[in-house]
Design a protein around this nucleic acid. Structure first.
Lengths: 153, 153
DNA sequence: TAGTTTGCCTTATAAAATGAGGGCTAGAAG
DNA sequence: CTTCTAGCCCTCATTTTATAAGGCAAACTA
């Protein structure tokens, strides 16, 4: 249940290179491939590792615009939150959505081709979602740090 | 240079399961493993795929608190932006940092163990960074959507 | 102390990745 | 119209990797 130094090293390396061969992982850590394999299987079984994914370059895919949108909901209808959440999960442009405590209700992160695509997204998707009362958009001018690995050390 | 239907399918599948065997990927798409391998190598060479990573469960790692922090910089010193960017890259708690257009300068996304850890982070890391004038913190109460795949279709 | 668990090892076997070589087709050039 | 070439896919042989079985030693427990 507790992670030792080797577990953390496995997680750390896998976070950077999720497709590394077990053999290479083993020799970088200094154990046999079998042991590493067993540990890794345990880490997955116990839920530390949820899966693996390719890191794609959004700009290369024509998604040049990153925006954050603060969303305020109309709170007169009680099931608006539930319905908004469901709608957000269906929108492919939305990469993240979080309910926050503070001046607004939701923070949405979305990637789009350009401002034209964003205007369409705002009008046809976001503002059409159930109970949305107000939005504030922040366009990203420069990505200083992107998807850093979780600190496991 | 242009992506066809098969390329997109490869990217789409790999985004969800970055460790899928080439053989299985091939039969899910309906081509030979060799062809898929060649395409994949091309997609990496041309920068569509930047790498692979394990998806870790932050809560399982003791990082139960997700926060977004809006940061305003003191703009009297011109190189503050540069220095702030450098400092942010060194902080392991910071998963993302974006320079935005609008009411503030940077949006920081960070994961921490709890509010106690956040207070320390705010005081010792964020507010100690060069040129930081003001911050507004939004704690996430519920993650509606987390790290969705990029739309490649 | 004796039994049991845990974590690692080696070895054998099964599966997958990789590289060489060849065929088919579409478009370009003669 | 024919020939050449480039792109894309295939099969097959070889190397590399994953996986499963079994054993050994240290630590923990009764």
């Amino acid at each position: 249940m507790e992670l030792d130094r080797i577990d953390r090293k496995i997680l750390s390396i896998l976070q950077e290179d999720g497709r590394i061969a077990n053999v290479e992982l083993a020799e970088r850590i200094g154990l046999s491939p079998t042991s590493i394999g067993e540990r890794l299987k345990r880490l997955q079984r116990e839920g530390f590792v949820e899966g693996y994914g390719a890191r794609l370059n959004p700009h290369r895919l024509g998604l040049g615009l990153l925006v954050f949108v603060e969303v305020l909901l109309d709170k007169t209808t009680p099931d608006n939150f539930e319905r908004f959440a469901r709608a957000v999960k269906l929108a492919p442009e939305v990469l993240e959505c979080h309910m926050v405590a503070g001046g607004f209700d939701y923070l949405v992160k979305a990637r789009l081709a350009d401002m034209t695509a964003y205007r369409r997204f705002l009008g046809e998707t976001l503002l059409s979602m159930p109970g949305v009362r107000e939005t504030r958009t922040y366009a990203v001018m420069e990505e200083i740090k992107r998807d850093a690995p979780l600190p496991v050390g």
